[in-house]
Design a protein around this nucleic acid. Sequence first.
DNA 1: CTGGTTCCATACCTTAAGGTATGGAACCGG
DNA 2: CCGGTTCCATACCTTAAGGTATGGAACCAG
Lengths: 186, 186
Amino acid sequence: MPAEGLSRDAYYEAGLDLLAEGGHGGLTIAALCERLGVTKGSFYHHFGDMAEYVALLLGHWEAEHATRLIALSASVTDPEERFDLLQGIAVGLPHGAEAAIRAWSWNSAVVAAAQQRVDQARLSHLTEAGVDAGLEPARARRMAKISLSVLIGMQLLERPARRASMDDVFAELRNWVVAEDSAGRA
Amino acid sequence: MPAEGLSRDAYYEAGLDLLAEGGHGGLTIAALCERLGVTKGSFYHHFGDMAEYVALLLGHWEAEHATRLIALSASVTDPEERFDLLQGIAVGLPHGAEAAIRAWSWNSAVVAAAQQRVDQARLSHLTEAGVDAGLEPARARRMAKISLSVLIGMQLLERPARRASMDDVFAELRNWVVAEDSAGRA
DNA sequence: CTGGTTCCATACCTTAAGGTATGGAACCGG
DNA sequence: CCGGTTCCATACCTTAAGGTATGGAACCAG
């Protein structure tokens, strides 16, 4: 083992911080290095170029942050509990980088691809949850789209996201889903 | 009247086109001038600098595109008709610059301010519509947030926005609102 | 203590985008 | 036909950001 300097993970977390604070415009090599107390020599030692770093950063985000709660809620069958977890996806993310990445995806093809992978994973999971709860597949998919859209929309509608306001909206939505779910099973 | 060259409106419409195609990263002075068949000399003749142009562009967008359907639906009282109009806000916009501007607002304070003005106008109008339809104010506001969030979320969830898919989701949502509305009046 | 490797600083290059300065063509009023 | 204004082309400057080349300090293996 050689001398321990910075790890790649340090660059990932710093990158997510920068995204949360200044959007994708704030994510520059200079800003990264300044935050980590190093110069560009360090960055280009760990990564070939910016494109490679971005790809790895997105992979880190997908694995460590975006899909964690999805996997967590896979074992939950109660509709209300599931909605609490969905709520957690919205308000419990670290750094608030989620919304910044979504905005960024409008300007970058690779970011859009990563974002779409995450969205599709969440969408299929929500759909499956609805089906398990007794909804017919087509309706379950529409409901999943609505739920996910509300999550995304609330993230972008209020910045920073107000916890109380989000709780209100999600409570309203949950009541609806549960009611529809009961009607579907009746 | 002097010799007629380009108008400012031409720069605005070209700017919205560029936003729709390449996001805010595609909106550059060089791209604008290339699209209009002129050089930078023309741009700096009509506008002092980029910041001034952006401010005017946003004003043009607010006045000509964002708030038009809001004013239009102000006279409609039937909940279902109103939802059709809301749907029109989502899918009937020219250029698809709406979503690009929303993404852009994450990186620019002035854009965020303009976006927020539009959002607040839509939100208050939707809330008022719900109250007129018989909902209690607090619930009407939550419903308005949900509706607007779905609109925003669907815009960003599917790119380009698929008309059929959006219709499905909005139909589902409309049924819900109408049902809640009837329940509220019962 | 010597050679190699890791990790990073320094200095420089290149490109893209905003911005400026100036001149010229067209057009119009007088 | 003449002076002024409008409208824009050309050329150049400046800055910020990505990228490169090189050297040096620290550290470990042998």
